[in-house]
């Protein structure tokens, strides 16, 4: 795997990841395109630039950890794993079928590169805190990144974890809230408003960085600032668009958990480009 800080190169990887996402969910005829597409730039920036990891050695003890707490966005990390060389790209289209390593939600039994099997929302940040504490105990440089959904943070456990992170000054963890404003049944503001997000996290003792979650340069800067921040955990509030990159999926609650049809896949691939 070739790491890069070049924005053009990272954008090209992001386009390939988007193509994989749409194609594999179309092939599976089920899955979650919206929240996969909104998280693309964050994951690409982490895996191809920011994180210290080695696809040839997924259990390297000093590796940085990533937890996809919003596990339903599995297709985005499958695409990133395939692009990074952790898993084969040619079987991505077996997504969600019996015997596939590409299970409906991240499953460590099938892909050892997963730090956690997820799919039940609300638990990933606590798990990440445990890993971050272990790293501090071991004097390991390992850092932990946890991606949360904006609907997911309605779970009470997220705020128990937030309180822990602030109180114990866990400064080797970074939470990313994929703030796409949509959850399963509709818009977050109509189901259970979570705003004001920055104020909430700040009051729990976190270093808060608000940014455009599709702006790779901004993401690079934010992760660098997070690494430099001592004595506080950092949360990135990544303002994103659910379904980003595919016009008819963008901001459309329908595409939270509905697969595109064959025609829609074609149309989406045209829009994303090569």
């Amino acid at each position: 795997m070739q790491k890069t800080s070049d924005i053009g190169e990272l954008q090209a990887i992001a386009r390939r990841v988007r193509r994989h996402i749409v194609t594999m969910i179309g092939a599976a005829k089920s899955g979650h395109p919206g929240g996969s597409l909104s998280a693309v730039e964050t994951l690409v920036t982490l895996y191809f630039d920011v994180m210290r990891h080695d696809p040839a050695n997924p259990k390297w003890p000093e590796r940085d950890r990533f937890i996809l707490s919003k596990g339903h966005a599995a297709p985005v990390i499958y695409a990133v794993f395939a692009e990074a060389g952790y898993t084969p790209a040619d079987s991505l289209n077996t997504l969600r079928s019996l015997g596939s390593i590409y299970q409906g939600h991240p499953d460590r039994r099938f892909i050892p590169a997963f730090e956690a099997s997820t799919g039940s929302l609300g638990v990933g940040l606590s798990l990440g805190l445990g890993m971050a504490e272990a790293a501090r105990l071991d004097k390991s440089p390992a850092r932990v990144f946890v991606m949360l959904g904006d609907g997911e943070i309605q779970e009470g456990q997220i705020w128990e974890a937030a309180m822990y992170g602030g109180f114990h000054k866990v400064d080797n963890i970074v939470a990313i809230v994929d703030y796409n404003k949509i959850q399963l049944d509709g818009f977050v503001k109509d189901i259970m408003e979570v705003a004001p997000l920055a104020d909430k996290w700040r009051s729990f003792g976190w270093n808060v960085i608000e940014l455009d979650g599709h702006d790779i340069a901004a993401l690079q800067q934010a992760f660098a600032d997070a690494a430099a921040m001592k004595g506080k955990p950092t949360v990135l509030i990544a303002n994103t668009i659910k379904g980003k990159g595919v016009s008819f999926m963008e901001n459309n609650p329908k595409f939270h958990g509905v697969a595109p049809t064959k025609d829609e896949v074609e149309k989406a691939l045209q829009e994303i480009g090569a």
């Binding site: 609907g151 309605q154 189901i191 259970m192």
Partner: peptide
């Protein structure tokens, strides 16, 4: 808890919005 379309409680929500309590993912 943000699964009304899957559990079919959305049918009740539509008929009786004042007796339907949206709790979010919690």
């Amino acid at each position: 808890a943000d699964l009304s379309k899957s559990t079919f409680t959305h049918l009740f929500a539509k008929e009786f919005p004042e007796r339907f309590f949206s709790c979010g993912i919690a």
